[in-house]
């Protein structure tokens, strides 16, 4: 699982004197070939499919250049993009708030239990993703104690949690939490605890120390963690479907339904292309901002 933490280090050239470059290409070829054929080229076919035109027969489409597919997809499902990104954004924010104390605790107080605590963080993912999501139906059930508690406080606009957007965001937050904790831990673990002592020594209160020392130095982990949460969350539709209702559907549902149930491949492909496109834009803006203004 720690493999999930992208290291931002730029590619160092090989340390060992280069050997026959031919061997290098031979080693690369099968793996990179696989990724080229089954990851990169499918994007091209996806794009081509998104421009295809119907032939009349169900599920059969002819090559074409029908940009109108995009217009139709947007007019039908545009609101789902907005909803997906709002849900994913909220889930990312909540996950960050929940993950930080635990990551901080493991990094600075973990001691000899660090390894065990990290195992405990990823252990829940050993239980089926779908079943854990489904379990939230039980936890957040209308007659259950959680809903009862919040109803007693009178904070639930619809009087329930299940089948509302609250349940969907809660599910997303929960499911991607480990992907937030691990990168946060990785960057906090690299932080020399003496820096915190030095900051305290130099008249900084704990709050100031956090704001001026710990938080800035943990930013690489924050960036990695928010991306690893936001990207899968915005494409997810399992939480929306298992915990929400028809009014909480996310864009992933639309892509799946159009591909598999309706067999409307051009519309489904257009939806998928746009999702990837928007994510790429959002992510590159985010990386650029956090890279130039905060990380330096």
């Amino acid at each position: 699982m720690p493999a999930l933490i992208p290291t931002s280090t730029s590619e160092a050239p090989p340390q060992v004197a280069a050997r026959k470059p031919r061997t290098g290409y031979l080693l690369l070829a099968p793996g990179m070939g696989w990724l080229a054929v089954f990851f990169a080229i499918p994007f091209v076919t996806l794009f081509i499919t998104s421009l295809q035109v119907p032939t009349g027969a169900s599920g059969v489409y002819a090559p074409g250049f029908d940009i109108a597919n995009y217009g139709e997809a947007l007019s039908q499902y545009g609101h789902l993009y907005i909803r997906s990104f709002i849900y994913a954004g909220l889930a990312t924010l909540f996950a960050l708030i929940i993950a930080y104390p635990l990551a901080y605790f493991i990094a600075f107080r973990g001691g000899q239990w660090k390894g065990l605590l990290l195992v405990l963080v990823i252990a829940p993912t050993f239980a089926s993703f779908l079943l854990r999501t489904y379990a939230w139906r039980t936890i957040l059930a209308d007659e259950g104690p959680v809903t009862g508690f919040f109803n007693a406080l009178g904070v639930l606009p619809e009087g329930r949690i299940l089948s509302t957007s609250i349940a969907v965001v809660a599910g997303l937050t929960y499911n991607f939490l480990p992907f937030m904790i691990l990168p946060l831990f990785a960057s906090l673990d690299k932080l020399d605890p003496r820096l915190i002592e030095a900051s305290n020594d130099l008249y900084a209160s704990p709050v100031t120390t956090f704001r001026k020392v710990v938080w800035p130095l943990s930013l690489p982990g924050v960036v990695a963690g928010t991306l690893l949460t936001f990207i899968p969350a915005s494409g997810d539709y399992i939480n929306a479907q298992l915990l929400g209702s028809i009014t909480t559907r996310m864009i992933g549902s639309a892509i799946q339904v159009n591909f598999i149930q309706f067999r409307d491949y051009p519309i489904a492909s257009a939806l998928s292309v746009m999702l990837m496109f928007i994510i790429l834009i959002v992510v590159s803006i985010y990386i650029r901002r956090s890279g130039t203004e905060d990380l330096v």
């Binding site: 990851f39 499918p42 492909s269 998928s272 999702l275």
Partner: peptide, 22 residues
């Protein structure tokens, strides 16, 4: 090419691969 699959939503990877197979 190695990094992108880890940063692509599953629904996009799944659907594009399906588009290829179709």
């Amino acid at each position: 090419l190695i990094f992108l699959p880890m940063a692509t939503p599953e629904v996009v990877m799944g659907s594009s691969l399906l588009a290829l197979f179709l």
